[in-house]
């Protein structure tokens, strides 16, 4: 059988979703952002909710997310995405609203907006990309940077005695009674990507019910440029190091805590 016989329209088993356009993504080679963009758009397409969905882009590497996603979107100031999402969802309770935020956006400058949005149980989906660094501005320390990790603003390693501890904001958010679904996912292997996509689908299905209850999905991602590794090495490093502190898996489902977060200080 020749390649020409295989490469035919009717034999396609995977192609890029139409909700991602043809512009080259602005992310570094191997960055997890692109994968999350894709599975988010795939899910919206598969659920057929693209005409009712409004997304909020953050400040950070994903500031240009709206350039690539073919749905209506708004660009928020740094950290304010959950406030925009609240503003929209309250006047359009039947539309689907998601925010897409990095760790600096969500767990530092936008902590108040994020916590209170979740505390009100806004019926939205928060997508949280945690790569433990400020990628866009060139590799500074993030609130989620691991202890001892070297960044451009912690050149001798994160010293928790002066810089504080890497924040497990996802576990904090899970404690809020109005939060419905909290899970920590990753996109470093095909299996992980498929699981992560299922989590997004579940969150939108919950949102479709139109009830109070925020869905919150953390994605552990590599920032291979920031970590100064290859993409393959970075994913491996993440599995060996990041996963120990930020343990992947479901934390809360349908308002029920599945496990109590372990805090080892």
């Amino acid at each position: 059988m020749e390649l020409e016989d295989i490469i035919k329209e009717e034999n396609i088993v995977f192609k890029k979703t139409k909700l991602l356009n043809d512009k080259p993504l602005s992310y570094c080679p191997g960055c997890g952002h692109g994968t999350v963009h894709r599975i988010l758009m795939e899910t919206i397409e598969e659920l057929g909710i693209d005409e009712q969905t409004i997304g909020i882009a953050p400040v950070g590497c994903a500031v240009m997310a709206y350039e690539f996603m073919e749905i209506d979107m708004q660009e928020a100031a740094h950290g304010r995405a959950p406030a925009l999402a609240t503003g929209i969802k309250r006047v359009y309770p039947n539309k689907y609203v998601f925010t897409y935020q990095g760790d600096g956006d969500l767990a530092a400058i936008g902590t108040a907006e994020t916590m209170h949005c979740c505390n009100r149980g806004e019926n939205i989906l928060i997508i949280f990309i945690n790569n433990g660094i400020y990628g866009m501005t060139g590799g500074q320390m993030a609130p989620t940077t691991l202890e001892g990790a070297k960044t451009s603003t912690s050149p001798y390693g994160r010293d928790v005695s002066t810089m504080g501890y890497p924040i497990r904001i996802t576990e904090l958010i899970a404690q809020l009674p109005a939060v419905r679904y909290v899970t920590r996912q990753s996109v470093h292997t095909p299996a992980a990507v498929r699981k992560a996509k299922a989590a997004i689908k579940k969150a939108f299905e919950y949102q479709a019910e139109g009830k109070q209850g925020t869905c919150f999905i953390e994605f552990l991602s590599n920032c291979n440029s920031g970590w100064k590794m290859s993409a393959v090495q970075a994913n491996k490093w993440m599995e060996e190091n990041t996963f120990k502190y930020y343990v992947p898996g479901d934390i809360k489902d349908n308002f029920k805590l599945l496990k109590n977060p372990v805090v080892e200080l």
Binding site: M1, D5, I6, I7, K8, N11, I12, V13, F14, K15, K16, T17, L20, P24, L25, Y27, P29, G30, C31, G32, H33, G34, T35, R38, V187, T189, P190, V193, R194
Partner: peptide, 19 residues
């Protein structure tokens, strides 16, 4: 044609065919 390469590709540049 298992699609794993396309699933992991961050830039969605891979189309997979199976026959």
């Amino acid at each position: 044609g298992c699609t794993n390469c396309a699933v992991i590709c961050p830039d969605a540049v891979i189309t997979v065919y199976r026959a």
